[in-house]
Design a protein around this nucleic acid. Structure first.
Length: 163
DNA sequence: GCCAACGTTGGC
DNA sequence: GCCAACGTTGGC
């Protein structure tokens, strides 16, 4: 029996890698390398599965917002950039025989229209439990519930039809 | 650019 | 194994 689809939010600084970058070529995929946090690592290694849906979130921008939707196309596998001394996220403690860091591959699905800003999320009482609106929540990979996922898409729909 | 919040490191 | 120091994240 297939594992139930799950939902995630992944943060990127658009100056480094934006949703537009992901969508620049049709059907292009990206590997989500460079995550060096154990909680995020564990989710990518253990919990994310092909077919899971991902909110692509732009952080450190004005305003921060969910830019689009992506799909996981490859489940967790070792992040080779941790093993490359010339790579910016090289980690001397990661070992090819026992890799410390993992990544997943995602493919862009569609941009949100309009994007849903962090303020929009905070203004919605239905989303007060959502991780990304919690103060001090820095995890770059976060689980999202199906209810939260559906609610964000309803917000997008409302904002589009009201404009 | 500031700085609060948080995760990691390493001396003890 | 505690915890101060340090580095990073990310909203503001």
């Amino acid at each position: 029996m297939p594992v139930a689809k799950k939902f995630w939010l992944m943060k990127s600084e658009p100056d480094a890698f934006s949703f537009d970058d992901l969508m620049a070529e049709p059907d292009a995929t990206a590997h989500w390398d460079g995550v060096r946090n154990y909680q995020a690592r564990n989710m990518m290694r253990d919990d994310m599965q092909v077919g899971d849906k991902v909110f692509f979130y732009h952080s450190r921008t004005k305003p921060p917002h969910i830019a689009g939707i992506a799909t996981v196309v490859k489940a967790g596998y070792p992040d080779h950039t941790a093993l490359d001394p010339k790579a910016p996220y090289f980690d001397a403690k990661s070992d090819p025989e026992n890799p410390r860091w993992f990544m997943v591959d995602i493919q862009g699905e569609r941009a949100l229209d309009p994007v849903v800003s962090l303020d929009d999320l905070k203004d919605n009482p239905a989303l007060e439990e959502m991780k990304v609106v919690q103060k001090g929540q820095r995890l770059s990979v976060q689980p999202v519930t199906q209810a939260e996922y559906d609610e964000v898409l309803r917000m997008e729909e409302r904002m589009r039809t009201n404009s």
